[in-house]
C-alpha cells in the first residue's frame, strides 16, 4: 500500500468489498460479450436448487433394495441417473459404505472438492483449514469433536479426494450423462446434529455412505 491511511472498503450496506467486485466483474464480462447474463443466472439457479436430499434418496433406496445398493457401490453415477438424479459432471462418482468394521471420512486437503450436485454446496467446516489438516492427521479426534466415537477395532478410512476435474466445455451438459473429465466431488459428513441440511447428509452415511470419488 502506498498510502498511509486506512480507508473503508467499498461496500454496500453489510456486504464486503468482494460483493461489489463480483458484481462489477459480472457487468464487465457481460459488456465485453465474454458471458451472457443468462448463463450466470442459470448457474445460480442450479446451485441454489442442489440439496442433500438427493444424496439421501440414493442411500434410502440402498437401504431397502439390496440390488440397488450393489449397483450404487459399483457405480454411483449410474445409480444416481437410474433414480433420475443429477450426479454432476463428474464421470466417476464413488459411493462407500460404513459397516460395523469400517468407517469412512472424506476431505479435500488441497481445496474443497465435494459432490455438490448430489449434496449441495459443502458446509463451511468442510472448507475450513482445521478440517483440511486434521481430517488426515487426527481423524479420530475430528470424529470425537463431531460426536462420533468409534470402537478401537473399527478401521478408519479417510478419502482425500483432490483430483476433481471439470468437463471439457463441449461435453458439458447439465444432468446428462455426458462429459469426460468430470468434476470430482466428495461428500462426507458425520455430524448428526447440524442443520436440516446436515441431517440429510448424515443419512447418507449412516449406512450406505455415499461419497463421491474423484473424477
Amino acid at each position: 500500500m502506498s498510502h498511509d491511511h486506512d480507508h473503508a472498503p467499498i461496500t454496500n450496506g453489510d456486504e464486503p468489498a468482494a460483493a461489489a467486485r463480483a458484481h462489477a466483474l459480472e457487468e464487465l464480462l457481460v459488456e465485453k460479450g465474454v458471458l451472457r447474463r443468462e448463463d450466470v443466472r442459470e448457474g445460480i439457479d442450479w446451485l441454489v436448487s442442489r440439496t442433500p436430499a438427493d444424496g439421501a434418496r440414493l442411500v434410502a433406496r440402498a437401504w431397502v433394495d439390496p440390488e440397488f445398493k450393489q449397483r450404487l457401490l459399483e457405480d454411483a453415477r449410474a445409480a444416481a441417473l437410474e433414480l433420475g438424479l443429477d450426479p454432476g459432471p463428474s464421470p466417476v462418482l464413488v459411493a462407500v459404505e460404513n459397516t460395523a468394521h469400517v468407517h469412512h471420512m472424506v476431505v479435500c486437503t488441497l481445496c474443497s472438492c465435494y459432490p455438490r450436485a448430489l449434496l449441495g454446496p459443502p458446509p463451511d467446516w468442510y472448507k475450513s483449514f482445521p478440517y483440511r489438516t486434521r481430517a488426515v492427521s487426527d481423524p479420530r479426534g475430528v470424529l470425537t469433536e463431531f460426536g462420533v466415537e468409534l470402537d478401537d477395532d473399527v478401521e478408519l478410512h479417510v478419502l482425500d479426494s483432490t483430483a476433481d476435474r471439470d468437463p471439457a466445455p463441449a461435453g458439458w451438459q447439465r444432468g446428462a450423462d455426458r462429459g469426460r473429465a468430470g468434476r470430482a466431488r466428495h461428500p462426507r459428513l458425520d455430524d448428526r446434529r447440524r442443520s436440516a441440511r446436515a441431517q440429510a447428509s448424515a443419512l447418507i452415511f449412516s449406512r450406505a455412505r455415499v461419497f463421491a470419488g474423484c473424477r
Binding site: P16, A22, L25, E42, I44, D124, R134, V142, F146, R194
Partner: peptide, 22 residues
C-alpha cells in the same frame, strides 16, 4: 493443527452465489 473445527454455518450471500456462477 489442533484447532477446533468451527461448525457454524452461513447462508451463501448473493455475491458468493454470483462468484460461483461466474
Amino acid at each position: 493443527s489442533d484447532a477446533p473445527i468451527d461448525r457454524s454455518e452461513h447462508t451463501l450471500a448473493d455475491w458468493e452465489l454470483l462468484t460461483d456462477a461466474l
